[in-house]
């Protein structure tokens, strides 16, 4: 949990439409759809693909590890480390 002051100060910036990641980064995000056999995690206009992912994960929150990332194309690949509990109100 962040401190109250940090909560007031968070987000006072202009955030890019295409956040960049690096191989090895671990992050929590929603799986947002499918592209062929792969799952897609779309973060803004950046896309991370999870090859041969379980379709049941679409719209679920997961912990990911980025395995590769192309900063010019704003695309990368990732693997699922952990799946979080089902959302009550998604």
């Amino acid at each position: 949990m962040s401190s109250p002051l940090e909560k007031f100060l968070a987000g006072w910036s202009f955030r890019t439409r295409t956040p960049a990641y690096a191989a090895g980064d671990e992050l929590v995000a929603f799986v947002t759809g499918r592209e062929g056999d792969a799952l897609v995690v779309r973060i803004g206009d950046t896309r991370l693909l999870i090859p041969e992912g379980d379709s049941g994960l679409v719209d679920q929150r997961v912990k990911l590890r980025v395995t590769s990332f192309d900063t010019d194309a704003h695309r990368g690949e990732a693997e699922v480390l952990e799946r979080y509990e089902l959302q009550d109100d998604d």
Binding site: M1, S2, A10, G11, W12, S13, F14, R15, T16, R17, P19, L27, V28, A29, F30, I43, G44, R61, Q87, D88, D89
Partner: peptide, 17 residues
């Protein structure tokens, strides 16, 4: 339009349910 204040899910977890 500009992304002022925009935050993504991986940027910061809200303290949720």
């Amino acid at each position: 339009y500009t992304g002022f204040g925009r935050e993504y899910v991986p940027d910061r977890a809200s303290e949720e349910v």
